[in-house]
């Protein structure tokens, strides 16, 4: 069979790794896949990690609902919002205790910029639109523009208070605080995030946020 010339083979060898993924991509794509899978209705055949991802989203939705309830009177079942995902419980894993807390943005400090009290309205199920907000925030963070990142997170929180990517939004909010020079708040927010979402795929990243800052 014809073979390549030594020069072409050398050129090919020098180029062979140029299409490899950047190192951060494995985690990034995995997070997106997990979210997609957790949001899909075919949970019957899910592995345990997926069940937990679904459960985390459910708890987020319930936590959000609990904090937005205007009065201590329980709403009638007719008006009770349906959780985003009803995930099967994994029987072998220990239970996750998630404190019901507002899953909007994980800044514990009073943050007037964060629309916690968003007007409850019909929320679209539009993962691509959610991703655009989140990616805008990530891009702004990468460009060291925390104000723009914060604006994008706010946009996501307004449009998708209980969105599939709420957890990602919270994790990014911790990074935004750090990038804004609010290291102490970032660390408190990180601790709160990890307490709420100990099994989150974001937990490791959040834990690292602002470790070096003073």
């Amino acid at each position: 069979m014809n073979d390549l010339s030594p020069e072409t083979r050398a050129l090919l060898a020098s180029l062979s790794s140029s299409h490899d993924p950047p190192p951060e991509m494995a985690l990034r794509v995995r997070e997106r896949v997990d979210l997609r899978v957790a949001a899909s209705p075919s949970l019957a055949h899910s592995p345990a990690w997926m069940a937990w991802a679904g459960l985390a989203i459910t708890l987020l939705a319930l936590g959000w609902w609990a904090t937005r309830a205007p009065s201590p009177v329980a709403p009638s079942p007719r008006t009770r919002p349906v959780p985003v995902v009803v995930a099967p419980l994994a029987p072998t894993a220990p239970p996750v205790v998630a404190a019901p807390s507002p899953p909007v943005i994980a800044a514990p400090a009073p943050a007037p910029t964060v629309p916690v009290a968003v007007a409850p309205r019909e929320e679209r199920d539009d993962l691509p639109a959610e991703l655009r907000w989140i990616e805008r925030a990530q891009t702004a963070l990468a460009a060291n523009d925390p104000a723009a990142a914060q604006a994008a997170l706010r946009g996501h929180a307004r449009a998708f208070p209980r969105g599939h990517l709420s957890e990602e939004r919270e994790a990014l909010a911790v990074q935004v605080l750090c990038a804004s020079g609010r290291a102490d708040e970032a660390r408190r927010a990180a601790a709160a995030f990890i307490a709420r979402h100990p099994t989150s795929p974001q937990a490791a990243r959040v834990r690292r946020t602002c470790l070096d800052a003073r």
Partner: peptide, 18 residues
């Protein structure tokens, strides 16, 4: 099955990407 997804993903993510 699904339990193996992690391992498959870890090992083959670069292959799929490139």
């Amino acid at each position: 099955g699904a339990a193996d997804f992690d391992a498959v993903y870890r090992e083959h993510f670069p292959f799929v990407w490139r």
